[in-house]
């Protein structure tokens, strides 16, 4: 990893964290409603976005995201203003026009299919886009993400089964971001499986784990497994161990977890870069402060934009023939 990339990842981490913290503040004010998102997953989600190939159509990757992939979207080139628009439920929200929660993306030009709140159903839809990609040829892949608790749904197995159906093996990168909790339920309380990744074994697919709080490990692992899926046109099941720095969502208070209870991947990365003399803490703090300012500014701008009108609910029920 060269110096420029290391610093780019740090910059994206800062943007991502400042964006999410802005959204959290909005959720606690009149500027937004429910929040959920991905602070704690940046070291994994940013490499994912940088290595993916967003674009429209079968030559590009398809994305079936969990609701914690804001950092991935930023790494793919999303303007944070768009996410603030969604949180502020403006008509200008390009993903859902004020219809959906934050971190519920849908972007046709990037093959980001609509994020749904229903846990694990994205695992069923992913084999469909991957089948189309396999038939089309090329090296586009389907990337689908979920949490650890959601793997208890039958849909987890259905996805793996369809992606390995003989004759229909397809290029899906299945990703579990394991943060050890489903809302309040600890992983060990409800899962007997030793690792979730090893569930791939029964389906005869390749699988592996990675420390998702480690930028370099995540980047390297993603590079390796994406190359495999692109080339072999077969699925891979990857489990990334991540943290959850603001709890589950608004429903659990959206407050920062106690100092030292969970690793902050930004702090870890920053320390590494300071040690390598790529940045100073002061410079980082400057950047962070500036980014906080920028998010405030973006929100101020977004609040001037039009709200969706009540009668717009009837738009887009059907595509007009």
């Amino acid at each position: 990893m060269d110096k420029a990339l290391k610093l780019k990842i740090l910059d994206l981490m800062i943007t991502s964290r400042c964006m999410e913290e802005r959204l959290i503040k909005m959720s606690k004010s009149a500027d937004g409603f429910f929040w959920l998102g991905g602070p704690g997953e940046e070291a994994f989600n940013i490499p994912l976005g940088l290595l993916a190939r967003p674009g429209q159509g079968l030559d590009y990757d398809y994305f079936h995201f969990h609701y914690r992939n804001g950092a991935t979207m930023l790494a793919m080139g999303m303007d944070p203003k768009d996410e603030i628009r969604q949180m502020n439920n403006r008509a200008t929200d390009p993903f859902s026009g004020g219809r959906n929660f934050c971190n519920h993306y849908a972007r046709y030009e990037w093959n980001v299919v609509p994020v749904t709140s229903t846990i694990q159903t994205q695992w069923l839809v992913a084999p469909g886009t991957a089948r189309a990609q396999k038939r089309h040829g090329g090296d586009g892949i389907t990337i689908v993400t979920c949490g650890d608790a959601g793997t208890a749904e039958g849909d987890f197995h259905i996805g793996l089964n369809w992606a390995t159906q003989p004759g229909h093996e397809s290029p899906v990168l299945f990703i579990i971001t394991n943060n050890q909790y489903g809302i309040s339920t600890p992983y060990e309380q409800v899962h007997g499986t030793r690792t979730l990744a090893s569930m791939g074994a029964g389906y005869g697919m390749e699988y592996g784990e990675v420390d998702g709080t480690d930028v370099e490990a995540s980047y390297a692992k993603l590079q390796e497994v994406m190359a495999y899926v692109r080339k072999e046109r077969k699925p891979f099941l990857l489990e990334a161990h991540v943290t959850r720095l603001y709890g589950h969502s608004s429903s659990s208070g959206a407050n920062r977890v106690p100092e030292g209870s969970e690793q902050d991947p930004i702090e870890t990365w920053l320390k590494k870069l300071i040690k390598q003399k790529l940045i100073t803490r002061e410079a980082y703090e400057e950047k962070f402060k500036a980014e906080v300012q920028r998010m405030n500014q973006l929100l101020a701008e977004v609040k001037q934009e039009p709200e969706p009108t009540g009668d717009s609910i009837y738009q887009h029920i059907f595509k007009e023939v």
Binding site: L124, T129, W162
Partner: peptide, 23 residues
């Protein structure tokens, strides 16, 4: 033939449709 799996059938059909196919 698909697996004996109605949820998988609807899910896969949706994925195909999202990717511009006609299932």
């Amino acid at each position: 033939n698909s697996p004996l799996d109605e949820r998988g059938i609807i899910g896969c059909a949706l994925g195909l449709a999202l990717a511009g196919q006609r299932p």
